[in-house]
Write a protein that binds this DNA or RNA. Structure first.
Lengths: 343, 343
DNA sequence: GGTCCGGGTGGAAACGATTACATCCGATCC
DNA sequence: GGATCGGATGTAATCGTTTCCACCCGGACC
């Protein structure tokens, strides 16, 4: 492998000049610049990343810390992050699927020195764990995190609003017994969606019933399980709202198996609007989340901080969600709904 | 940030000794070792990764190059890779969603010096592009690649076998007009699955018809489109085999919209057996691919090469696929099928 | 009792870049 | 015509490790 010295020797200049050409820093005469470029190309010179980041203390790499991932949602987020990062010339160090908290913290420590900034999407992690395992000044953005500490930048989606809008829509269709399949325990998105569900009921003067709030963990299987139980209730709900689409799909499957027709006997709605939702039978109503955009925005936020000379003000942003009404929750599509669907 | 020098000074030893303790290389007396450990912990010393990899020329990082990703398949692969990598103390530098070949090659070059080994899953990339953009000796494993050059290690799945088994199953159920929705052009998995389809037809003495081989690109949308067209054919097929589950799901949606009942009027089958397949209505028959295992195995293969002192022999492995028969392709489940389903 | 051995330790040379600082030199200004 | 300026270039320090080599020293061996 050719080093900067080899190039310098071959081009008859000093390493300083070569460095200036490579990084386009400092003045170099046109003639020299051209010659060095040629030599560098010919010798296939690639600057040694380690040496460079040893002296500059920068890596042009961003770290991404994810929870144990669930399907489509995950790949969409990563994709958004990846695109934004590449656009800015940054690389991505990804660490996912951490079983427990100790593992997450270990992964966090391992990022030290390898990244210039970090995007963290990990529900079970608190602020203390963060500051204890990371260098002080590492730019950080929390994605859909439960941490409400203003000390951190954070990006979230309208979980509460989206959930309550969906439940209000169901109420508007005449449903009074509306069940909810909750998301993973201790997950921020999950609890916000639950909160939205409860708020919508309350606002409509419908009393909350614990037998209608079933547990789930965002997997199809757990959705299936929960709906199977709901189908057996003496006093069956007429609608069920799942905290994500995967569970909604599992629920639809359970209802079919139990001979409950959708949406006539039970309306079903999900959250996320993953691509497959519209291809379900019947097509699944959901709350659209700009998943890819979430990743892109997070990347831009963290890059802003990476590049900022001075410590910036903390930022908190929330991305809007949109109701997407399809036939799984029945009711004739109103003009308003149709418009939404067209989006 | 504390450096090794700080620790050495504080512990009253030389940096060499500290290094020996940190890396557990060379002899250090028990007493000294303990003292250095204490000091290092107290000062929160973390070895500087850049300095370390500058001198050792290793990064304990693996690169992963992926095509523009499609949903669940992708996240499962990454997860497998991630788990195997972590288990071995390696990090993951991920680069995905490359629109064209130039972008892929750029990503490839950018990996130089940042990784000790590389897992590549990119259909449109040939052997020349690889050797031209990478250092000579970088351990490399190709995943489901079209490159048949024996110069590279490769890992594939039984695309041909899985596809032909599924089509034979359909034929066994009495179907003679079986359509296929093809995968993305120039994609290796896609063409192998097509080959399997054709081979099964041929073996059964069924003549191939071009109007039954529809194009697709692995997305739900393309599956929908293809099936919508099939439904309109004068002489409609009685079964359709999609090159992946996403398209099969899109196809099922189109058939429903066209009023074609599944499986009575048309049987449907997919490939991959993504988690959602079994929750479809009706549950989707598919060919199970050990996706996570694919990632894990690839990681182990590349790590073997990374750690090997001497250049190893080239390896090529193929992972088995399994037929998973559900009700979307009708027919009473035979004992054999039932056994398979239980898996 | 000298030689040899090997565990424990330190000194210092790498690794390959960036960059502050010094130097040179021709043009410009007064 | 000398002082000044700024563009072009080189020298060398620096980043934080690993590791080769040398050294010391106590015990075993002959």
């Amino acid at each position: 492998m050719a080093t900067i010295k080899d190039v310098a020797r071959e081009a008859g200049v000093s390493v300083a000049t070569v460095s200036r050409v490579i990084n386009d820093s400092g003045p170099v005469s046109g003639e020299t610049r051209r010659r060095i470029r040629d030599v560098a190309t010919r010798m296939r010179f690639t600057p040694n990343v380690a040496a460079r980041s040893l002296i500059t203390a920068r890596t042009t790499t961003l770290g991404v810390l994810l929870p144990d991932l669930y399907g489509e949602f995950f790949s969409e987020v990563i994709r958004g992050i990846d695109q934004a990062a590449r656009r800015n010339g940054y690389h991505l160090l990804v660490s996912s699927s951490h079983a427990d908290r100790a593992e997450t913290e270990a992964a966090l420590r391992a990022m030290r020195g390898r990244v210039d900034g970090l995007i963290i999407m990990s529900p079970d992690l608190d602020a203390r764990a963060l500051v204890h395992n990371l260098p002080e000044r590492l730019p950080l953005v929390l994605l859909n995190s439960a941490i409400n500490d203003v000390a951190f930048d954070a990006l979230t989606i309208q979980n509460f609003r989206g959930a309550s809008a969906m439940v209000r829509h169901l109420i508007g269709l005449g449903h009074r017994r509306i069940a909810m399949i909750r998301g993973a325990a201790r997950n921020h998105d999950a609890s916000e969606r639950l909160r939205g569900y409860r708020a919508a009921l309350k606002r409509a003067g419908i009393e909350r019933q614990s037998e209608l709030e079933r547990t789930g963990d965002f997997t199809e299987e757990s959705g299936y399980q929960a709906a199977a139980e709901l189908a057996l209730l003496r006093h069956r709900p007429t609608a069920v709202f799942a905290a994500n689409d995967s569970m909604a799909i599992g629920a639809m499957s359970a209802l079919r198996d139990a001979g409950v027709s959708i949406p006539d006997e039970m309306a079903v709605a999900g959250f996320d609007d993953i691509p497959i939702a519209r291809y379900m039978s019947p097509p699944l109503s959901s709350v659209r989340v700009p998943i890819g955009e979430l990743g892109e925005r997070a990347t831009e936020m963290v890059l802003d901080k990476v590049r900022a000379k001075t410590p910036q003000v903390r930022r908190r942003e929330t991305l809007a969600t949109v109701l997407v009404i399809r036939s799984s929750c029945g009711g004739s599509a109103t003009a308003d709904d149709a418009r939404r669907r067209a989006q």
